[in-house]
Design a protein around this nucleic acid. Sequence first.
DNA 1: AAAGACAGCAACCGCTCTCGA
DNA 2: ATCGAGAGCGGTTGCTGTCTT
Length: 304
Amino acid sequence: MRKPEIRSTKKSDVVNKKKLRKGLWSPEEDEKLVNYMVRNNGQGCWSDVARNAGLERCGKSCRLRWINYLRPDLKRGAFSNQEEELIIHLHSLLGNRWSQIAARLPGRTDNEIKNFWNSTIKKRLKSMSSTTTTTSTSPNASDESSSLESNKDLNILGFSHANYNNYMMDMPIFASSSSPSMFENTIFNTMNIDTLPMLQHSGYLNTAFTVPCFSQSGEVDIRDSYIENGGIQGDVCKRETISIDYTFDDMNSILSNCNIIDSNNDNKNGVAENLFQEQLNLGEWDFEELMKDVSSFTSLDYSF
DNA sequence: AAAGACAGCAACCGCTCTCGA
DNA sequence: ATCGAGAGCGGTTGCTGTCTT
């Protein structure tokens, strides 16, 4: 942490500009910022916020302080195992796109997740890597550059975008249509990687997936949920709404052919069914089908 | 008990993107 | 089309507390 400091001590700067503080925020500054944000519902640009709240800070600093620390909806404290696994999984899909990962973890900030990743998870993955890749012949096996870190992690987790996409296309919901291009050209392409179902193969079921909800207007409401140990953990992720050209009836006819049954776990099956019947009425997922291509993935062990 | 190493994390930096003039 | 300001993002820094020797 940094000590509060003055940005510039040059006499001319001091004369021409108001002194801008840097470093740690004092409780008084926090109070000023919170009071201002509450009074004004967070309206206005950040430089105005800084000025009007009487803070000797740049707008950028105020924004960061608010987003990462003062926002009322922040969840403080240690990451739960569920959150941790979700982060690992999302990172395997999204890489270092912390803001997008954070968007799927309510109450957590990108900075928090980034720090958690760099300080905790990375180390664990590294230790996993050292135990799982001791026989690796890859010339990059010892490359610790951050740019490769993501791919390494991905490999450790047995995931890649390539096999993820293949895997996706094996999913009945995407592949069952008699005209695959329909999904390929619309939903599959409209949904980017951020909104695709996320499935995770692990010792016990801890599956995050994106649930498309169809409305009469033809909009798809993307809701990310996950199941752990047979219990719904709720909508862990933000809802995203995308517009598509298909009507509700179109979608229903496409999806009516889906027959999704989880034969592995009655409880999970019930959960999945309930979820889809209540929220989606889309049909059922065939977890065996979903997992068909997953057999090639390396088994995950999160008991770090 | 002291010193060095390490971990955690708040905050800054620099870059890119977006949007309005 | 261009430019500038503001916002957002990922990478990095550096301080503090804790652990280890």
